[in-house]
Amino acid sequence: MLMPALAGALRCQRDSYLKVLQTKVVSCEKKKGFYAVEFEDTVLFPEGGGQPFDKGVILREKDDSETPVEVTDVQRDGLHAIHSLISPLEPGETVTMQVDWARRLDHMQQHTGQHLLSAVLDKKDVATVGWNLGVQMNYVELDRKLSTEEVQETQLDVNQAIAQALPITVDISGHDEEKGAMRVVTIGEMDRNPCCGTHLAKTSEIGSILLLHQVPNKGNSRLFFMAGNRVTDYAKSSHDRIRSVNAALSCQTDDTLSKIEQLQLRQRALLSQLKTAQQELAVQEAGKIAAILESKEVYVLYKPDYDMEYLRFVEKQLPDLQGTAILLCGQGPSGGAIIIAGKAVDKYAGLVKDTFKDAKGGGKGRWQGKVVRYNSGEVERALELNK
Rank of each mutant, 00 (worst) to 15 (best):
A161G: 01
E93G: 08
S250I: 00
L18I: 12
Q114G: 07
L223R: 04
S173V: 11
V245K: 05
R76T: 02
V135S: 07
T253D: 01
A247Q: 08
A36Q: 15
V372P: 08
Y374N: 07
Y17A: 14
G350V: 12
H213F: 09
Q22L: 04
E38V: 15
P319C: 01
G130C: 04
F224Q: 05
F39V: 10
G335W: 04
A119Q: 13
A282V: 01
K62L: 12
Q110W: 10
I338L: 11
G332F: 14
E40C: 02
T128L: 09
A382C: 00
T276H: 14
Y299K: 01
L18Y: 05
P91Y: 06
E380W: 10
P333N: 07
R381P: 04
A382R: 00
V43K: 07
D122A: 09
Q273K: 14
L301Q: 06
I326T: 09
Y348D: 01
E261A: 04
Y310N: 06
R373P: 03
I168F: 11
Q264N: 05
F225P: 02
L79W: 03
V314P: 05
T203C: 04
D191I: 10
M190A: 10
L59N: 02
K218H: 07
A36E: 15
H83D: 02
R103W: 03
G174Y: 14
K24Y: 00
V300C: 04
N220C: 11
A227Y: 03
C195E: 13
S16V: 10
D41T: 03
R60Q: 11
K360M: 11
Q51W: 13
V74E: 05
Y35G: 08
T276C: 14
V151I: 13
Y302A: 04
Y306G: 00
C329P: 06
S334F: 08
V99L: 12
F39C: 01
D73G: 03
Q114N: 06
I339M: 03
D191P: 09
R103T: 13
V37M: 01
I172V: 13
C251A: 11
T67F: 09
E380V: 04
K364L: 11
K364D: 12
F45E: 01
